[in-house]
């Protein structure tokens, strides 16, 4: 459990970081919080020739309110985002999700953007970004682009980030008027990757009737599965059945595919009920 040899780069500015990434291309991996990458290296499941450690790059840890939402920098740790007043007021779903991410010691080190780029279909934050319709800003030497969540999560552990690119920030849209959110999940142990989990977003009109309802499901497909259940609202049981029809769970040593489908239905109903009550 020792990593294979690699060249280590520790740029101190974003320009340096992008220059190194341009140079090493597909042979490089970015190290931010390291909560997934370091175990992969130690188990020799990943063997990049170059490790580009961005922890010394200035200015990447910002968490800032922007018009219409909140922008989270590449070095913002889960714990900092969890505590951020800007995040709390702009989008409560982020905090609801972060409480379910692993354990405090991991959240002290792990980064929000790192979790998005890692694109684990069992992770909470990709589901949040997908549900909210957020985006990730990818920079390379002399240029940058914003990729919408729906295009960003390509497959299991695969994002739209290309060699030479650095995910510098992510944008989470703010909560709309009379909108409620919830995130519920069931994990084998506290802090484990969930066997199933559902984030819900429910918007009401001025009369209190449901205008829109959507969920994002984790651990039941190659990427977060977003389902619009506005048509079924406010019959959340029917909504749950619609969600169950859309997901593609697979069985593993912790849970069968059937159980995950069942569980996702239960959690979808719970999440939608909570989000509607919260709106």
């Amino acid at each position: 459990m020792k990593p294979p040899p690699f060249d280590y780069h520790a740029p101190t500015s974003i320009e340096q970081a992008l220059a190194v990434l341009a140079e090493v291309g597909a042979h490089g991996k970015v190290l931010a919080g390291g909560q997934s990458l370091i175990p992969l290296l130690n188990m020799r499941l990943a063997a990049p020739d170059h490790l580009v450690d961005i922890n010394r790059v200035a200015g990447l840890d910002a968490v800032e309110a922007e018009p219409g939402g909140v922008r989270v920098g590449a070095l913002a740790r889960h714990a900092a985002v969890e505590r951020s007043a800007a995040v709390r007021s702009a989008q409560p779903l982020i905090g609801q999700a972060l409480r379910l991410v692993a354990h405090p010691v991991i959240r002290n080190r792990g980064t929000v953007v790192g979790s998005l780029v890692h694109a684990d279909p069992s992770a909470e934050l990709p589901a949040v970004l997908a549900l909210l319709g957020g985006s990730v800003r990818l920079a390379r030497v002399d240029t940058e682009r914003d990729v919408a969540a729906e295009d960003f999560f390509v497959g299991p552990l695969e994002s739209a980030t290309e060699p030479g690119e650095l995910a510098v920030s992510a944008f989470f849209p703010a909560l709309g008027r009379r909108t409620g959110t919830a995130f519920v999940e069931v994990a084998r142990r506290h802090g484990d990757f969930a066997m199933a989990g559902v984030a819900a977003l429910v918007g009401l009109d001025d009369e209190g009737a449901v205008m829109s309802a959507r969920v994002a499901c984790i651990s039941v497909g190659p990427a977060p599965v977003v389902v619009d259940v506005s048509a079924q609202a406010p019959d959340w049981k029917a909504a749950a059945r619609a969600v169950q029809d859309r997901i593609e769970p697979e069985g593993d040593i912790h849970a069968t595919a059937d159980y995950r489908r069942h569980l996702t239905g239960v959690l979808a109903e719970r999440a939608l009920t909570q989000a509607a009550a919260d709106a």
Partner: peptide, 11 residues
């Protein structure tokens, strides 16, 4: 016994 096992037993 896991939740998934118990679910199977119930069914």
């Amino acid at each position: 016994i896991s939740p998934s096992d118990l679910y199977d037993l119930r069914r």
